[in-house]
Simulated assay, not measured.
Amino acid sequence: MPTAPEPSISAKDKRPTKAQLSWLARGRDEPGGKLPLFTPAGQRVNDRMVKSCLAHGWAEPWFENPLKPNWLVCKLTDAGRAVLADANAD
């Protein structure tokens, strides 16, 4: 299983962008918190955004995709659910 980078202390305090919130929210109701590889418009999700969410601890790698090994299949973490709850409370 791939490993996610450890979130830094300062990263835990950072607020997600609208794009990050939108992507994370799409995993909230999916089985296991699976995050999408594609946008609703059918475009591939931005790798930099995914890696940023991984670095903040809001998402984590789930498993290797044997058909597309360079694609990160991720799932929502408890920290990701917490930032979504905080964003909805604002």
Rank of each mutant, 00 (worst) to 15 (best):
R28H: 10
G32V: 13
P40A: 03
W23N: 00
R26K: 14
A79N: 12
P31M: 00
L76Q: 05
R81P: 00
A19E: 14
L72I: 14
D29W: 09
R28N: 03
G80F: 03
P31W: 03
A41Y: 06
D78M: 05
R28D: 07
R48I: 06
R15K: 15
P36S: 02
G57D: 04
R26G: 06
V73K: 06
L72F: 10
A79R: 14
W62H: 04
C74D: 02
L37N: 14
T17H: 00
W62I: 01
D47F: 01
P7K: 10
S10I: 13
D13A: 08
E64R: 15
K18Y: 09
K68T: 12
P16S: 05
Q20K: 04
K51L: 11
L37E: 15
A82T: 15
D78S: 14
A55F: 06
R28P: 01
P61H: 09
A82F: 04
W62P: 00
P69Y: 03
L72E: 13
W62Q: 05
L37K: 11
S22K: 11
E30S: 08
A11P: 08
I9N: 06
Q20D: 07
L35R: 09
L67M: 12
D78E: 15
T77R: 05
W23R: 05
L21G: 00
A11E: 13
G80Y: 02
C74A: 00
S52R: 15
W58Q: 02
V45P: 12
P40I: 04
C74H: 01
A55D: 12
L37W: 08
P31S: 01
L21N: 04
P66C: 01
S10M: 09
T17D: 06
S52W: 14
A25V: 01
K12E: 12
L54T: 03
L21E: 07
K75A: 13
V73C: 09
A59S: 15
D47N: 11
K51I: 08
D29Y: 10
A79E: 15
E64W: 15
P16R: 08
S8H: 10
